[in-house]
Structure formats: structure tokens, C-alpha cells
Simulated assay, not measured.
Amino acid sequence: MSRILIVEDEDAIRRVLIKIIKNENTSFVVEEAADGEEGLAKIEAADFDLVLCDIKMPKMDGVEVLEKVQAIKPEIPFIMISGHGELETAVESMRLGAFDYISKPPDLNRLLNAIRNALDRKKLVVENKRLKKKVDKNYEMIGESEETTRIKGIIEKVAPTEARVLITGENGTGKELVAHWLHQKSERSKNPMIEVNCAAIPSELIESELFGHVKGSFTGANKDRAGKFEAANGGTIFLDEIGDMSLSAQAKVLRALQENKVSRVGSDKDIKVDVRVIAATNKNLKREIAKGRFREDLYHRLAVILINVPSLNERVADIPLLIEHFTEIIAAQQGNAVRKFSEGAINLLKTYKWTGNIRELRNVIERLTILGEEEITENDVQLFANK
């Protein structure tokens, strides 16, 4: 159930907007305010999923309301309502953080599309915040080895900047962990980080996933849909396994990076986006370029900063701290006491070759905590590690 606030000083316009919204979805809860001061007071007192706000109002204009709400509840999307001669102000409100603007009198389809897209964006932001609360612990960078310390140092320098980052490394080394740290330590951390696994999305759907689509643009496109670049506006988009992206999608990503614009599949309308791009791959992109499978111009756009995440075999000194970290997480998830590992067990685990890297180590630790005794011994490792 979505809560929508209409801030509009003209009673007739409020009535029209309420009717349109209720006809779209009767479950929507719609509240109204007759001026900017009343609207701001309602926003401060309650949570809303969307605000439709007139620009020219007595007491406090819509731009001032937008600016004040951006400071206290930036996750609420604003659709500005502009009258004749207010187009320049409407565009300025977009720069200040408004999601969209609608001219008076409101066009039905334009208004409904804006409302749907704004509510979709709000859901993504809320979900991202919910996940982020879980993520902080799970994505903590564990280790004090020389290799891990080097990466932490790079992150501290790079995160506060707008530089694009390309993260390389084998599967399971923690590339997504580095991406999360870059975002969480950046000025964009209050806005969403949207993740896209380029290897998991069929090539014929990747462009729609990244850039959105308009209704009827292909079979199954039953309504307009915002893409991941739009959802990440003001924040970060993480393109994981970008080496698996199709060449046609690469061309569109390159344009987005060059012009800060995207266009939905089936549309020729440009949409401005402000997105920091972090990409990751387990492939050698220079080799992929030589084989014609990856665009060299895109590579140079992405690889402003290169971070190579070493394999677990290259950072064996981190294994004791990783064991401690994983046992605490697993115990909390299973509701059990934290298991202890003997020195012999730890030393034996340090001698193994970890082809699956940190992901494999975590699975082994979980297996040992389930099958081992109160203290995990060298004998338990030999029996259950399956190495």
C-alpha cells in the first residue's frame, strides 16, 4: 500500500489528481496539503512513498519544499507540477533532486507513468537500505595481510572520488565486497548501490535490464519500466562480470558513461543520469579485446582505477581472521555457540589450495561447524574439509 501526498494550492487540480491516482489503484492512500508549509509539516510527521508538489504556491513554493525534504528524507521521490511559464524552474528542481515534473493540465498517461516509475524507484531505494543494514557486516573486509592492507589503502583513497573503478580477480575472491566498500565509503552512500550480474541475464534482456524499456517495445513489455541506471541515479551501479556483456549492450554503456544519458529500449527520449560506475570481471579484458569480444574504448572508460583482488592462496596470512569471522556469522545465523578452531586445524587449513577462494573457505568452515565437535580439531579438518 503506497502513501502519496499531493501538495497543491488549487483545489480543482487536487481533486483531479486524487481521482486519477485512485482510478489507477484504489489501494493507494492519498493525502493532500493546500500549501508548501502544510505539505512540509505532513512530510515531517509521516512517511510517504511519493509527493506530487506544485511549484508556485503561497507561503512556501515547491522548490523550497523539495530542498527541505531532500535534507531530511531524501528517499522520497518528488514529482513537480509546473504551470505555464515555469518550465525553467521545473528543470532546476530536477537538478535539485526531483524525480520528474508534469505540466498543467496533467496528461493522464504521462502522469501515471511518472507515478509508477517514481514508486518503483522508491521500492528499490527502500530495499537497498534494508539490504545495506545486513550487508555492512557480511561485506566487511577481513584480513591484515600485506595484500589486503594494500587494497584497503586504495579504497580509502579512491572511494571519496568520482573515479570509475574496474575490479579484477578470480571467482570467489570478494570483488563484490570491494565494490560495496567503495560505495559505502563514498559521498554517494546515502543513495542506492544497484547491482547487476551481467553473466546471469540473457543477452537479449540485458539492455532492458540496464536501461529500461517502453510498453510494447518487445514481447512481454506490458508497461514502461525504469532500468538499473535510472534506479541508481545519484548513487552507484555495480556491473559484475562485465566481461560477459554483449557488444551491443557495451555500446550503450559506453554512451551512458560519455554523455550521462540513457534511453529506454523502444524509445528515442534521452534520460539524464548521475551514476558512478564500478565494474568487475574474472576475465582478462585485454585478451577479450584482442579477440573482439570487448570494446577497447569501454575498457579505458571503466579502468580509471584498477583494483586486482588476490586469490586466497596469495593471502594465506588472512585465513585465521577469516575463520574467526565466518564462525561468528554462521553461529549467529544458526543460533549456536561460536565454535573454536584448534591451532592445528587452522595451520592445516592454511596449507590447502583454495581453488574456490574465500567462497570455498566459508563453505568449508560452515561444514566443519556442523559436522565437527565443540572444538574443531585437525582431525575434523582431515575428515570433513574434503580437500
Results as ranks from 00 to 15, higher is better:
residue 301 R to H: 04
residue 275 V to R: 10
residue 141 M to C: 09
residue 187 E to A: 13
residue 56 K to M: 15
residue 234 G to N: 10
residue 149 T to I: 11
residue 180 H to G: 08
residue 240 D to C: 07
residue 218 F to I: 04
residue 205 L to F: 14
residue 141 M to D: 06
residue 365 I to T: 14
residue 102 I to L: 04
residue 354 W to R: 11
residue 167 I to P: 00
residue 165 V to Y: 00
residue 198 C to A: 04
residue 217 S to A: 08
residue 79 I to V: 10
residue 84 H to L: 11
residue 76 I to P: 03
residue 307 I to P: 01
residue 54 D to P: 11
residue 378 E to V: 15
residue 109 N to S: 02
residue 270 D to V: 06
residue 197 N to T: 02
residue 55 I to N: 02
residue 74 P to S: 01
residue 280 A to L: 02
residue 147 E to V: 06
residue 230 E to R: 02
residue 158 V to P: 03
residue 90 A to N: 05
residue 203 S to H: 07
residue 44 E to W: 09
residue 274 D to L: 14
residue 297 D to T: 06
residue 43 I to D: 00
residue 204 E to H: 12
residue 231 A to K: 00
residue 158 V to A: 11
residue 255 R to Q: 15
residue 186 S to C: 12
residue 360 E to Q: 11
residue 308 N to L: 11
residue 79 I to R: 04
residue 361 L to K: 10
residue 39 G to L: 13
residue 203 S to G: 12
residue 95 R to Y: 12
residue 350 K to Q: 07
residue 332 A to K: 10
residue 112 L to D: 00
residue 166 L to C: 02
residue 142 I to L: 02
residue 43 I to W: 09
residue 224 D to S: 03
residue 241 E to M: 09
residue 161 T to K: 01
residue 312 L to M: 10
residue 276 R to C: 06
residue 141 M to S: 06
residue 62 G to L: 01
residue 347 N to S: 13
residue 331 A to C: 12
residue 234 G to I: 01
residue 164 R to I: 08
residue 55 I to S: 02
residue 202 P to M: 04
residue 31 E to F: 15
residue 262 V to M: 13
residue 227 G to N: 08
residue 273 V to E: 13
residue 118 A to F: 01
residue 102 I to W: 03
residue 207 E to C: 13
residue 240 D to Q: 07
residue 333 Q to L: 13
residue 216 G to Y: 00
residue 199 A to T: 08
residue 164 R to M: 03
residue 255 R to H: 15
residue 143 G to C: 01
residue 14 R to Q: 15
residue 287 R to P: 11
residue 86 E to F: 05
residue 175 K to M: 10
residue 242 I to F: 06
residue 311 S to T: 09
residue 268 D to T: 09
residue 174 G to Y: 02
residue 252 K to I: 14
residue 324 E to K: 14
residue 170 E to C: 13
residue 360 E to D: 13
residue 315 R to W: 01
residue 228 K to T: 07
residue 385 A to V: 07
residue 71 A to T: 09
residue 62 G to R: 00
residue 347 N to R: 10
residue 361 L to R: 11
residue 200 A to W: 10
residue 259 E to V: 12
residue 346 I to W: 08
residue 33 A to M: 09
residue 188 R to Y: 04
residue 121 R to M: 08
residue 135 V to D: 10
residue 12 A to V: 09
residue 218 F to K: 06
residue 174 G to P: 00
residue 112 L to T: 07
residue 201 I to G: 14
residue 166 L to T: 00
residue 251 A to L: 12
residue 89 T to M: 12
residue 133 K to S: 14
residue 313 N to A: 05
residue 337 A to I: 11
residue 7 V to W: 04
residue 161 T to H: 02
residue 245 M to H: 05
residue 284 N to I: 05
residue 191 N to V: 03
residue 82 S to A: 07
residue 255 R to Y: 13
residue 212 G to E: 02
residue 294 F to C: 05
residue 334 Q to Y: 11
residue 4 I to R: 00
residue 306 L to C: 14
residue 199 A to K: 01
residue 22 K to N: 15
residue 90 A to I: 06
residue 202 P to I: 05
residue 307 I to E: 08
residue 325 H to Q: 05
residue 274 D to I: 08
residue 61 D to E: 11
residue 224 D to L: 00
residue 305 I to K: 03
residue 80 M to S: 03
residue 308 N to G: 11
residue 302 L to E: 00
residue 363 N to L: 09
